[in-house]
Design a protein around this nucleic acid. Structure first.
Length: 894
RNA sequence: GGGAGCUUAGCUCAGCUGGUUCAGAGCAUCUGCCUUACAAGCAGAGGGUCACUGGUUCGAACCCAGUAGUUCCCACCA
């Protein structure tokens, strides 16, 4: 018997077992005859560091993987990282900036060299951090979305989709991020409500052929004074520089007279047409709209419809362009203030109102998005997305929890074409090649492109084909992840993809349901004609105590590695899972990890107790036999309960059930019954049958605990016994639920109720736990009841258990299962207080009886309710009547 | 502007097709215990008008309608 510390110390244990598991290749998976169980990790950003969201997400994955492994499945968890084009490029740019290097000074190749250096240096950090958590990924399968094979898959898919007619190139209004200097997709724009100003600006109206000298201040003022103007409300006065029309509703009586007239753009003095369109909301603002086709999607559409000029007044980095003619080179927000002031001074502004509107922000850089016309690549979504909708709606792919079905459906039914090009360097470069005239061909290589050009035009001989400068959206590679990690593009019939695909569960955050999950499903059906996963488990968002999202800028996110060093990985895992039902936000608090750590310690000490026992040649007592029979049934019942919870993906509930099984049933009840007495400073020996049974129970319990707490379970597993090299809990068999005896469970539950009542009396009367008590039971002595006597004696510190036909005077009493119990307490009974207590109890039971009787006397109840319900009410009636009778007797005898 | 969800104990959440003493769990709180496995512990106790209002029903936390609060998603109203 080894001396074990009173407090479990995870620090040494965790690294030891993690490297042991690695050494034994327990995480490794290759196709075999077993049923596969597969998870592909949602690849974290290659530049990322582990945050609480990752912790939650990966803990859940590890729990599922470890349990599947124990269930005898071939568990395969594929790890990897995402190149995260815009986020990584931004990081590299700022890193270079610190070193005094500007991106614009570098060639594409030079920049990419720095970027790869950065990736090599920092790219693996997050995966190493996952190891600290205990993640049992098959590290030999680690993939990166920009490694050669995966990039090739992205390019091949692009070409394929282009050839199928799904990809097109077009001028579109895109969401332009002036800070990242790239287009971003609709999904990457976050709309926030902001306080703005609504400027009411007067536009002078003139007749079609009217000549007016707009530099003549007096002439202009006269126009404004005589009312020859239209007032237009705008929140973006700087876009006035790009106005090319004024628009009103054709039915608007106020503006009928404007037909055939022209408007003068203030300040710019450009003469533009007044157009009429039903798009206008007459009630909004003044019912008139200034049209800026280059900088607003609606205006753009109007422009297309009415053949308006497009003047692009804003540069890619958000400054006024040459075309704006004024304020050239100044930032758009500075110009907004300046032009407002200048217009005011020139008398064009009628009034300014406070106004709340929604403004789009870039998810990545938080810059205000500028709608901008540009030439981009798009993926047509309408037809390709159909199977992804159908197969989620029909339950072929399950969303957990299913409350996300509605939003999923809504999104998929209104899906927009996906802008897949990004004006960045870090990522897969678009395989389109241009000749000098700007004609292009989509092809994998320059040579292929050349050949294709030649097929179109045999005289083609341009040697200067240029590849598109843009790269593809990151999601254009991650949407292929479940297929590409198994090389399903390069080699679509390989052993791995055939075995592991479709994967089982995808664990991810609801925020990327559309970004990623939906698109993976689309790609799955397009390229494998099969779903990529069977279940999508959507985790909650980890928030702080104040309900705020954890973020770096708020500084409210604890460092997971610090938490692990404080509470142990097991403790943190339990802490994360304790209150995180699927789809619910998780208000994180360190105290949860503390609870997890305490649980580790509880298990540790249960083991310490068992470990301290010495066996002797003793018969098994009836008391111990009862405990063993009971716990055996209890364990079995709980295993099936826990299995059921897992099957419903109720992971926190499964954890809580495990927690209570260990803490309450095993430690507080079972061990307290069987542990040997302590006499003369020495623990008595225990019979070997009880000892062995207890160890078997402990082993099963450790197995149930293992998915949640891999380290401590493995540690104790090996402390129990010397084991073979590969005899580890991580690959042990998940315990089976054998048939259990409900009667044993019921009888023990009754016993527990009695014991709690006795302890309550002791506590209520302030009697020291050391003082023994006598118990009288008012029934005929019988063997079944008597068998519990030693057990009650031990757990309640009783000196004797007696059976009696009479009432006991001067005793505290209680009723349990319609049996009266007495504990003589001469001199410590307050008769009045007892009377009060009894009266209260009688009142309660009478009230209860009354409500039961009301039901039973109600004809409609008797005729409508199901027979078993009525029977139950009858039983309730009888029980209540019996109880009242006993209580009244007691009261009268006092 | 449209849509979806949520509201149960101080906190975080269970509560399956309306019916068992159904109002629950964990944590926190309070009381008493340093009882040789564990004070990171043991034993016990107190906490709730199930958001509000009405309806359906013999019976409602659960079904229906409305109201309020809250969260999320979608959307091009200047």
């Amino acid at each position: 018997m080894t001396e074990l510390p009173k407090i479990y110390d995870p620090s040494t244990v965790e690294d030891k077992w993690y490297s042991y598991w690695l050494k034994q290749k327990f995480f490794k998976s290759v196709p075999d005859d077993r049923e596969p169980y597969t998870i592909v990790i949602p690849p974290p950003n290659v530049t990322g560091v582990l945050h609480m969201g990752h912790m939650l997400n990966n803990t859940i994955q590890d729990v599922l993987i470890r349990r599947a492994r124990m269930l005898g499945k071939n568990a395969c968890w594929v790890p990897g990282t995402d190149h995260a084009s815009i986020a990584t490029e931004a990081k590299v740019v700022s890193m270079l900036k610190e070193r005094g290097i500007s991106k614009s000074d570098l060639s594409r190749e030079e920049f990419l060299k720095y970027a790869w250096e950065w990736k090599e240096k920092y790219g693996g950090i997050i995966l190493d951090q996952l190891k600290k958590l205990g993640a049992s990924c098959d590290w030999d399968r680690t993939r990166f979305t920009m490694e050669d094979d995966l990039s090739e898959a992205v390019i091949d898919v692009f070409i394929d989709l282009y050839n199928k007619g799904y990809i097109y190139r077009g001028v579109r209004m895109v969401n332009w991020d002036p800070q990242g200097m790239t287009a971003v997709s609709d999904e990457e724009v976050i709309h926030k409500e902001v306080n703005s100003k609504l400027y009411f600006v007067r536009y002078i109206i003139i007749d079609e052929n009217e000549k007016i000298d707009l530099n003549d201040k007096d002439a202009v003022n006269q126009k404004l004074e005589t009312g020859d103007y239209i007032t237009i409300a705008t929140v973006r006065p700087e876009t006035i520089l790009g106005d090319t029309a004024v628009c009103v509703h054709p039915d608007d009586e106020r503006y009928k007279k404007l037909r055939g007239k022209k408007a003068v753009i203030p300040f710019v003095n450009r003469i533009v047409p007044v157009i009429f369109d039903e798009y206008i909301t007459m009630e909004f603002g003044t019912g008139a709209l200034k049209v800026t086709p280059a900088h607003d999607i609606n205006d753009y559409n109007l422009g297309v419809k009415h053949g308006l000029e497009v003047i692009d007044t804003i540069t890619p980095d958000g400054k006024m362009s040459e075309a704006a003619k004024f304020y050239v080179g100044e930032d758009r927000f500075t110009v907004r203030k300046k032009i407002a002031k200048d217009l005011e001074e020139a008398g064009y502004i009628l009034k300014v109102e406070d106004y709340k509107n929604k403004v789009g922000y870039s998810e990545r850089t938080d810059a205000v998005i500028e709608p901008k016309l540009s030439l981009q690549w798009f993926l047509k979504m309408d037809t390709i997305s159909k199977p992804a909708l159908e197969n989620v709606l029909n339950g072929n792919i399950k969303l957990i929890p299913d409350k996300f079905l509605n939003t999923y459906k809504h999104w998929m039914e209104n899906v927009h074409d996906w802008c897949i090009s990004r004006q960045l360097w870090w990522g897969q470069r678009i395989p389109a090649w241009y000749d000098e005239k700007g004609n292009y061909i989509v092809a994998k290589t320059k040579e292929e492109a050349f050949e294709k050009f030649k097929i179109q035009n045999s005289a083609f001989d341009s040697q200067n084909l240029k590849q598109d400068e843009d790269v593809l959206d990151t999601w254009a590679s991650s949407w292929l992840w479940p297929i590409s990690v198994f090389d399903g593009f390069k080699n679509p019939n390989n052993k791995d993809i055939n075995y592991y695909y479709p994967t089982n569960d995808l664990i991810t955050a609801p925020e990327i349901l559309f970004f990623w999950v939906a698109r993976m499903i689309i790609a799955g059906y397009e390229y494998r004609n099969e779903k990529p996963f069977k279940n999508v488990y959507l985790t909650g968002i980890v928030r702080d105590k104040l309900g705020r999202k954890m973020s770096k800028s708020l500084g409210n996110s604890p460092d997971p590695l610090v938490l692990i060093s404080k509470f142990g990985a097991d403790g943190v895992r339990v802490g994360m899972l304790l209150c995180s039902p699927a789809g619910n936000d998780l208000p994180f608090d360190e105290s949860l990890c503390e609870q997890g750590r305490n649980f580790s310690n509880k298990i540790w000490n249960a083991f310490r107790l068992i470990n301290s026992w010495t066996t002797g040649d003793i018969d098994t007592s009836e008391k111990n036999q009862i405990a063993i029979d009971w716990f055996s049934s209890k364990l079995s019942a709980e295993i099936s309960n826990i299995n059921d919870l897992y099957s419903k993906y109720r992971i926190s509930d499964a954890l809580m059930a495990t927690y209570k099984l260990v803490w309450d049933d095993f430690c507080s009840w079972y061990l307290e019954i069987v542990k040997p007495d302590f006499i003369d400073g020495k623990s008595l020996p225990i019979d070997s049958y009880t000892c062995n049974s207890t160890i078997e129970f402990l082993e099963d319990i450790l197995k149930l605990v293992h998915p949640f707490m891999p380290f401590i379970s493995e540690e104790i597993w090996h402390l129990i016994n010397e084991r073979e090299e590969k005899e580890c809990i991580i690959i042990s068999e998940w315990p089976e639920s054998i048939e259990h005896d409900e009667k044993i469970l019921d009888r023990f539950a009754q016993l527990q109720e009695t014991i709690v009542s006795i302890r309550a009396i002791r506590n209520g009367k302030n009697i020291s736990p050391k003082e023994t008590l006598e118990l009288f039971i008012r029934i005929e002595e019988n063997p079944e009841s008597k068998s519990f006597d030693p057990l009650m004696k031990k757990l309640c510190n009783l000196s004797s258990v007696n059976y009696t036909n009479d009432k006991i005077e001067n005793a505290a009493s209680f009723i349990s299962n319609n049996i009266e119990f007495f504990i003589p307490l001469s001199g410590r009974i307050d008769v009045n207080a007892e009377k009060e207590k009894l009266k209260k109890e009688i009142d309660y039971n009478k009230g209860f009886l009354k409500s039961v009787m009301a039901k039973l006397l109600n004809e409609k109840f008797v005729s409508n309710a199901k027979p078993e319900i009525i029977l139950n009410e009858e039983k309730k009636k009888n029980d209540a009547q019996a109880k009242i009778k006993v209580l009244e007797e007691q009261l009268s005898s006092l």
